[in-house]
């Protein structure tokens, strides 16, 4: 039996949250949050139609292949899943994507990227973690680099970023480092998010608000 009213359907969806509240907390307008719901519905129904994004659905949306694994896609999924229940609800999706909005504060982007690289969640990016990430990516690519070259790249990075020379990069060092090298935050901004209402015009049909701005 289908839903007769889209609003009732949405509010009975697990993890759904009021777009007005989400817009107030994030870099998005109400219209943009509603357009994001169209994207969310598509991703969250791609394998299991339960109104939640499972890891396989997230991977399918990123790689167009649910079986492909990637260290960073896993890490990003875990960071989006801030309730730590193994799935991403609509509120988590919007709040997390907000960091990637062109208008989001740079400090939020810097903090998110730090948490992404802090694989073991120790509060530091450690030398071994950084090498592990480089090796994981090399494994997934056709690029071959000798261990000496990898060591050299990691050493040079630590020479520049680890100002305290204690073998780990803390959040303050990370902030100073990326402010010197803003290109490292390139992946933290998604220009698409500014045009999300154009990408999902169907949100207008399902809008809950008369005037969304």
């Amino acid at each position: 039996m289908g839903c007769f009213h889209s609003k009732i359907c949405r509010f009975s969806t697990p993890g759904y949250e009021d777009p007005t509240l989400l817009a107030a907390e994030t870099a998005f307008t109400v219209s943009e949050v509603e357009a994001l719901y169209e994207l969310f519905k598509k991703i969250s129904s791609s394998i299991i139609d339960d109104g939640l994004i499972h890891k396989e659905e997230f991977q399918l949306a990123i790689f167009k292949n649910q079986n492909r694994r990637d260290l960073f896609a896993d890490r990003i999924f875990d960071l989006f899943d801030f309730k730590r229940n193994g799935v991403i609800g609509f509120g988590e999706f919007v709040r997390s994507l907000s960091v990637f909005h062109p208008n989001a504060p740079v400090a939020d982007k810097i903090a998110f990227a730090f948490r992404l690289y802090d694989l073991r969640q120790t509060g530091y990016i450690e030398r071994e973690e950084l090498k592990e990430m480089v090796l994981a990516l090399l494994n997934e690519s056709d690029l071959i680099l000798s261990d000496d070259i990898v060591e050299m790249i990691v050493d040079k990075t630590f020479d520049e970023a680890d100002k305290k020379s204690d073998g780990k990069i803390d959040e303050e060092e990370w902030k100073e480092f990326v402010l010197m090298k803003p290109s490292l935050l390139k992946n933290m901004t998604l220009p698409y998010l500014k045009d999300i209402t154009l990408a999902f015009p169907s949100f207008v049909m399902n809008s809950e608000v008369e005037d969304s701005e």
Binding site: L39, D70, F72, L130, L143, I153, E160, K186, A199
Partner: peptide, 25 residues
């Protein structure tokens, strides 16, 4: 050539490029 490990990671990891979420929408 990459002289910076983070530059290498952000350039090489397709899992860190969320723009693909919007492709084929």
């Amino acid at each position: 050539p990459f002289y910076n490990a983070f530059e290498f990671i952000s350039s090489m990891s397709s899992g860190f490029d969320l723009s693909s979420l919007f492709e084929g929408k």
